[in-house]
C-alpha cells in the first residue's frame, strides 16, 4: 500500500483540525485487537487512509510508533486481500516498518523512549500481584467459617 508524502501531509492537516478524529485514531491505536475485521470496520468512513492518519499521528507523538506499526501491518494485509493478492505477515511487518522509517517516524529518540518507558510499563502491568492480599482475605474467611462450624458442632 502506498502512503505518499502528500497523503500523510493531508492526514496531518485533518488531524490538526478535527480533535474528534484524532481521539478516534488514538483510541483505536491503543486497542490491542488490530484484527483485519476491526481495521476494515474502523477504516470505513475515515476522511483519509487509516495508515496515513496513523503515520501523521505517530509523527506528532499522539500514538506510539509500535502501535501505528501494528495496525499498518494489518492494514497492508487487508489492502492486499482487497486487491486479490496476499502478503505474508512478516513481509507486511517489514513493509510497515519501512513506511514508518521513510516518513521519519522511527527515530533513535523514539526507539530509546520505547525501551525506557513502554516496555517497562507493560512489564509492570503484567506482573502486578493482585491476588496476594486478596488470597489472604479468602483464607481468613474460610478459617473463620471453619471455626464457626466447629463451634456449632460442639454446641
Amino acid at each position: 500500500m502506498d502512503y505518499n508524502k502528500e497523503d500523510v501531509r493531508h492526514a496531518g492537516a485533518l488531524l490538526a483540525e478535527d480533535s474528534e478524529l484524532i481521539n478516534r485514531v488514538c483510541d483505536f491505536a491503543e486497542k490491542s485487537d488490530a484484527s483485519a475485521i476491526q481495521v476494515l470496520r474502523f477504516s470505513s468512513g475515515l476522511p483519509a487512509s487509516l495508515g496515513s492518519l496513523l503515520i501523521a499521528a505517530a509523527a506528532h507523538d499522539r500514538v506510539n510508533f509500535m502501535d501505528a506499526h501494528r495496525i499498518i501491518t494489518t492494514e497492508m494485509q487487508c489492502a492486499a486481500l482487497r486487491q486479490g493478492t496476499r502478503i505474508s505477515y512478516l513481509n507486511a511487518v517489514q513493509d510497515a516498518y519501512d513506511v514508518l522509517e521513510e516518513h521519519g517516524v522511527i527515530t533513535s529518540e523514539r526507539v530509546r523512549d520505547f525501551g525506557d518507558t513502554v516496555i517497562p510499563g507493560i512489564a509492570k502491568d503484567l506482573s502486578v500481584s493482585l491476588p496476594a492480599k486478596k488470597q489472604d482475605d479468602i483464607i481468613d474467611f474460610y478459617e473463620a467459617r471453619a471455626r464457626f462450624k466447629a463451634k456449632s458442632q460442639e454446641a
Partner: peptide, 16 residues
Amino acid sequence: FAIFATVFSKVRALRD
C-alpha cells in the same frame, strides 16, 4: 524487528 514486532503484538494483547 520482525520477531520483536510479533512478540510485542502478543504481549500487548495479553496485557489488555
